[in-house]
């Protein structure tokens, strides 16, 4: 019975929902549309409950770190404190942001921290480019030239200095880049169908935890 519930039943569900999901695309009947809506509502509910799983894991891991006083346990304390403060202030503010403490945390903590993280990308791009963009081979040289052309042509200064740079960068984007991406997309899509077929027919079942 346990094996049925752990293996067979999920596989039956996977098969049924997989086949129904694929067929739904071809069935325009309102019943099919309604079923899709219903499933999407379920998914939204499941995703909501899954968050509880995540938060439980987060609390457990950081509690263990604080309890055993492992190196850097202070950061775990920061996690707990910031989570508690945000939740309490959020509930106190009834989820409203305008002129509330929750709005203050959003604007002056979250917004600033996230902006900082994204801004670091610019610095990291520069350092990675300096370290790794070297014409070690013919392929690397092509990559290098394409990168320089793109960076040159996508900014006003580049176009101001060489007016043709903009259209050349645009051509690279809309022709060369698009062609390459289409090739990758086809491969990815085929891989997607193959993986879906395996999952639907129960051939790939590692997501259930191992194979037996």
């Amino acid at each position: 019975m346990i094996l049925f519930l752990r293996r067979t039943f999920p596989l039956i569900l996977t098969f049924l929902f997989g086949v129904a999901g694929a067929l739904q695309y071809y069935i325009p009947h309102p019943v099919s549309e309604a079923a899709l809506t219903e499933v999407s509502v379920w998914l939204r509910i499941i995703l909501g409950f899954a968050m509880i799983l995540g938060i439980a894991s987060l609390c457990h891991v950081h509690y263990a770190k604080i309890r055993t006083r492992v190196a850097g346990w202070g950061y775990s304390l920061v996690v707990y404190l910031s989570m508690m403060i945000t939740v309490v202030v959020g509930v106190w503010s009834r989820g409203q942001e305008e002129g509330t403490g929750f709005g203050w945390i959003y604007t002056y903590a979250l917004l600033a921290l996230q902006g900082t993280m994204f801004a670091m990308l610019g610095f990291f791009v520069a350092s990675a480019a300096f370290r790794a963009f070297r014409a070690r081979s013919k392929e690397a040289a092509v990559l290098l030239v394409a990168a320089i052309l793109m960076m040159f042509g996508r900014v006003p200064l580049g176009e101001y200095l060489i007016p043709m740079a903009g259209p050349v960068a645009g051509w690279l984007l809309s022709v060369v880049n698009t062609a390459a991406r289409r090739g990758i997309l086809i491969g990815i899509s085929l891989g997607g169908i193959a993986m879906s077929v395996k999952i639907i027919f129960g051939i790939e079942r590692s997501y259930l935890g191992g194979r037996d």
């Binding site: 610019g122 791009v125 520069a126 480019a129 300096f130 370290r131 963009f133 070297r134 014409a135 290098l144 990168a147 320089i148 960076m151 040159f152 996508r154 900014v155 006003p156 200064l157 580049g158």
Partner: peptide, 23 residues
Amino acid sequence: GMDAQSATHFIIIGLILLCNLFY
């Protein structure tokens, strides 16, 4: 912000050229 983007792009182009020169 476009002037800033122009400048950073040119700095990165310069860095790439320099690194290849050094290389």
